[in-house]
Amino acid sequence: MKKTLYISIFFIFNIWNISYSQDSEKQKKYIEKDTSFISELKKAYDVSCEDFFEKLEIPYRKRENLGFGYQIIDSGKGLGSISFDYQILFLNDEILAYNISTEINENKSDRIKKLYKDKLSGIFEVDENYKVSPLSSDMNKIYISLNPKKEFLDNTVNELMNPFFSRTYGTMCGEAMRTLDNRKLFDQFICEENCEYLLYSMNPATRIMSIEFYYSNLNKFNKAQQKIINLRIEELKNEPLIMEICSGCIYSGKSSNKIISELANSR
């Protein structure tokens, strides 16, 4: 009986040891892959922004149309145990602003985290707690109105102008039926005074939610406001685009004009 027990323990220990060794070898390969890429990325960063983006393999052909000459790339590049997320805003094919972020896995040992910090510090700012600050440029431009004459001074709505924020149109979404982050923020700040302004957001989801608010609250807008907003809605219909929508658990694409037509017919 004891002999059988010892044999079982021996086999269990060996299986655990093999599994641990394989896992350690996999982690080692991940780290080598990560640090090698970061070194190459640093060299590209030192040459030019163009080389840096090329090394990140930015998929320029997969730009999402925001309308009015604006496009966005919102994607990332994964490696071993690190990834780089990037958001790049374009105006007429020229880069207007960008934000590139990454993070050091907090579950790594201090020795490994220090290794990643040393490598990443050539490009990003990394604090003593291994928090990596994003690398960004001209981020103030993501908040601009599509009509500079329609400036609104209340900074609380700035995030709703931001195309880097969620561009999904919907309300409750996902298996847990959670309210979308942009919907939460929109419902918190939307009112008759800023509805027209938000129709000039670079973020198409904000524009559509503003149309929804307008059609749902027509009696709160005077005739002069209605005339101006109706003209703006016609302008938006002349800039059709495919939007990501979420209904229930399903994400899909839908024409902005079809959404506007459904909103107009449901008032």
Results as ranks from 00 to 15, higher is better:
residue 140 N to I: 10
residue 163 P to F: 09
residue 177 M to Q: 13
residue 181 D to V: 14
residue 178 R to C: 01
residue 155 N to Q: 08
residue 134 P to I: 02
residue 189 F to M: 05
residue 156 T to F: 00
residue 183 R to G: 02
residue 142 I to V: 15
residue 141 K to F: 13
residue 151 E to Y: 10
residue 175 E to T: 04
residue 229 I to M: 09
residue 211 I to P: 08
residue 138 D to W: 08
residue 148 P to G: 12
residue 177 M to L: 06
residue 140 N to K: 12
residue 162 N to I: 10
residue 222 N to M: 08
residue 203 N to L: 10
residue 226 Q to Y: 04
residue 227 K to M: 05
residue 213 F to T: 01
residue 149 K to C: 07
residue 231 L to Q: 13
residue 198 L to F: 04
residue 163 P to C: 07
residue 189 F to K: 12
residue 196 E to K: 10
residue 160 L to E: 00
residue 234 E to P: 05
residue 181 D to Y: 11
residue 154 D to F: 01
residue 164 F to V: 03
residue 198 L to D: 00
residue 148 P to R: 10
residue 158 N to F: 12
residue 190 I to E: 03
residue 149 K to Y: 11
residue 154 D to I: 01
residue 141 K to W: 09
residue 215 Y to G: 04
residue 208 I to E: 03
residue 178 R to T: 13
residue 230 N to K: 15
residue 132 V to H: 12
residue 217 N to C: 11
residue 200 Y to R: 01
residue 184 K to R: 15
residue 215 Y to R: 10
residue 191 C to Y: 03
residue 180 L to I: 07
residue 197 Y to W: 03
residue 235 E to A: 07
residue 203 N to H: 11
residue 180 L to T: 04
residue 181 D to I: 14
residue 176 A to E: 06
residue 188 Q to M: 14
residue 164 F to G: 00
residue 225 Q to W: 01
residue 169 Y to K: 04
residue 141 K to M: 13
residue 173 C to F: 02
residue 221 F to N: 03
residue 148 P to S: 13
residue 148 P to H: 07
residue 198 L to R: 02
residue 232 R to T: 14
residue 133 S to F: 05
residue 154 D to R: 00
residue 224 A to M: 00
residue 232 R to Q: 15
residue 140 N to H: 14
residue 139 M to N: 10
residue 235 E to N: 10
residue 221 F to S: 09
residue 223 K to R: 06
residue 170 G to T: 05
residue 203 N to I: 07
residue 230 N to S: 15
residue 207 R to S: 05
residue 216 S to T: 11
residue 131 K to C: 06
residue 143 Y to S: 06
residue 234 E to L: 15
residue 209 M to I: 00
residue 133 S to A: 12
residue 142 I to G: 08
residue 218 L to D: 04
residue 197 Y to H: 13
residue 200 Y to A: 01
residue 191 C to M: 11
residue 215 Y to K: 14
residue 219 N to V: 11
residue 204 P to I: 08
residue 214 Y to S: 07
residue 148 P to N: 10
residue 228 I to M: 06
residue 155 N to D: 10
residue 134 P to H: 02
residue 202 M to I: 14
residue 177 M to P: 00
residue 185 L to K: 12
residue 132 V to L: 12
residue 189 F to E: 09
residue 149 K to W: 04
residue 188 Q to T: 15
residue 181 D to P: 13
residue 131 K to S: 09
residue 139 M to H: 03
residue 222 N to W: 03
residue 214 Y to L: 06
residue 196 E to L: 14
residue 152 F to P: 02
residue 167 R to G: 14
residue 144 I to Q: 12
residue 154 D to T: 02
residue 146 L to H: 01
residue 207 R to E: 13
residue 143 Y to L: 15
residue 143 Y to N: 06
residue 178 R to Q: 05
residue 227 K to N: 04
residue 187 D to A: 08
residue 219 N to D: 15
residue 212 E to S: 11
residue 132 V to K: 13
residue 133 S to K: 14
residue 220 K to L: 15
residue 154 D to A: 02
residue 150 K to N: 14
residue 144 I to S: 10
residue 187 D to T: 08
residue 139 M to R: 12
residue 143 Y to Q: 06
residue 210 S to R: 00
residue 192 E to V: 14
residue 205 A to G: 10
residue 185 L to N: 09
residue 212 E to N: 13
residue 208 I to T: 04
residue 158 N to T: 07
residue 234 E to N: 15
